[in-house]
Nucleic acid binder design. Structure first.
Lengths: 340, 340
DNA sequence: TTGAAAGCGCTAACAA
DNA sequence: TTGTTAGCGCTTTCAA
């Protein structure tokens, strides 16, 4: 496949000088045409643009940026191998950025602070104008330190003082799930979720108990903290059924857990949703749709978190006063067969 | 959260001039110190580096790039919303790029040619030095046209003449699965997979029948083409069992299908792996590990595909003669309980 | 209405 | 051993 012939020259990049020469004007004039600036004869404008088009001229953003001190780039730093938590955020950020003609560098730190530092250094050297970080489920993360550009943290909130974070509403999501179940006439509601050390698990549980309390109720049993896995869901369903055979609904801390619960319920002779209604969390479609029956699930709207983060970042880049604190994006409920 | 006070000035960016002034030398000297070029007194070097460090100087890569005509950036274009197929490739590309101090722009086309064109235009304007595309399962995609920079397509092969693609070995993966089953003493092997129109489905099936043929065998029944879903797995398992109750192993076109099959097998009174061994495809861990029992699965080594693509891209950027054609990265088998 | 020239931050060739 | 200068591609005065 290799060949000895000279490599065919790739088309040389066309500069403003080429356009000027080809259209017989100065580079200043070309610049004015391209930017619609200054006073020029219509005929000149037309002619120069035509030439620029014909030559396939694209202004070099490095040169533009050098002069303007801007790069129209931002960076997204993930820490979790672009997991299913980071990806929707990325898409949201991109959504918001693309029409602004801003490009996005991405990198992943694999949860390694050294790698993170390294990436931040390089990105700053490249003069990105802002940084978005993404996290894995709602946790608390360290800040990035005092940087010369605005930073927005997403999903995981930053512990750095004055830092700004956009996070999912785990608590509200838990409440949402409960209200849906109450409206459907369920009242003996259990909760099976991930490890206690996860902020997300605690908040989802708190939202659930809160919403039950509003209705003068309590969970049918103490929330069961364990793992984020299907296997834990299977185990915990057994534990719950043994303690409270009369349970008529379970809110799960993740769709994976909910799948495990669904399976175990069947094995214990309970029908979903007839005997026990089931709600998952995170609305991870391959999981939620593959379950039998398909799972009602709390959607944390991570893409919206990404859009929101991008909007704030652009505002900050534009000179808006710095924001600190945590902004929470509401969750929504996607209703499927497991609660119908 | 807003305040009326003046926004605290972010630290102004330090230029080579600042360093020169602060250390009482010319900018040329600073440049030599920073790049280790030229002949300078050791004392000067030490002093200037110290000042540069103290000031937190970072050379502006825009200026460097403008001069050198290089940007040390590449782009990755996904088409599938950074799906589980694109993400491992991204990580592989990043793996290979990071030590080279090359940064990666990413964008997603949402499978929209207009969006793709738009992104390509913008990336070229930014003078990326190369482009990697990622695809969703092995398909054939259109090329990007004649670009002034090298392009490597991954996962989906490009139909563009002279284009270079790095793709998974679906056929080899199918063969791998069969050989593993044969070695385990199974011989009545069925196949349940995705839609016939997918190249990946066809190749996996071909690999399977090929490896069986080598052993003088044929599939226990015609391969069942359907959907990539669990639901299809459940359905198809029933069909297969009705046709061939004596089947002792099933290779599935995806882990999702395999999960469905596993579930249905249980319902039909077949134990996995005792009665029927099961192999999935793609080694999508949340699916493969959550199944009961955990699934043996063919890993397509997408991260390795990413690394390989990055290596070729860098070579091409470095001036290696252009390659055309398709490079196949071998698959491997991850053995778990479903075949033990 | 157009052109000339300065300068963004940096490197490299050449002078001193 | 160090400084000076030109120039990368572009925008933006200011002159013509």
């Amino acid at each position: 496949m290799s060949d000895l012939e000279e490599r065919p020259d790739r088309p040389r990049v066309v500069t403003i000088r080429d356009v000027a020469a080809a259209s017989g004007v100065s580079i200043g004039t070309v610049s004015k045409v391209l930017n619609g600036r200054g006073k020029l004869r219509a005929e000149t404008r037309a002619r120069v643009s035509a030439v620029a088009d014909r030559l396939g001229f694209r202004p070099n953003p490095l040169a533009q940026g050098l002069l303007a001190g801007r790069t129209h780039t931002i960076a997204l730093i993930a820490c979790d191998g672009f997991s299913r938590f980071s990806v929707p955020v990325m898409l949201g950020v991109e959504d918001f950025l693309a029409p602004e003609e801003i490009s996005m560098f991405t990198c992943d730190t694999r949860d390694d602070p050294i790698r993170e530092r390294h990436h931040v250094e390089r990105l700053l050297a490249r003069r990105v104008e802002g940084i978005v970080t993404t996290g894995r489920r709602a946790e608390t993360r360290h800040g990035l330190g005092d940087l010369p550009v605005p930073v927005v943290h997403t999903v995981s909130r930053s512990a750095g003082p004055g830092d700004f974070s956009v996070v999912p509403d785990d608590r509200g999501g838990g409440a949402l799930a409960v209200r849906h179940l109450l409206a459907a006439g369920r009242s003996r509601i259990g909760h099976i979720t991930g490890p206690r050390r996860f902020l997300a698990a605690g908040q989802r549980a708190a939202g659930l108990t809160g919403a039950l309390a509003e209705a003068g109720l309590r969970p049918v049993a103490e929330p069961l903290f364990g793992e984020w896995s299907e296997e834990w869901g299977r185990q915990a369903a057994g534990i719950l059924l043994r303690a409270r055979p009369d349970v008529d609904a379970v809110v799960c801390g993740s769709d994976q857990i909910a799948r495990g619960v669904a399976e175990a319920m069947g094995e214990h002779g309970r029908k979903v949703p007839d005997d026990v209604a089931l709600i998952g969390f995170e609305n991870w479609e391959p999981m939620a749709l593959g379950a039998r029956p398909p799972l009602t699930s709390v959607d944390l709207n991570l893409t919206e978190i990404g859009r929101t983060a991008a909007r704030y970042l652009l505002d900050a880049i534009g000179g808006a006063p710095p924001q600190g604190g945590v902004l929470t994006v509401p969750a929504t409920l996607v209703v499927r067969e497991s609660t119908r």
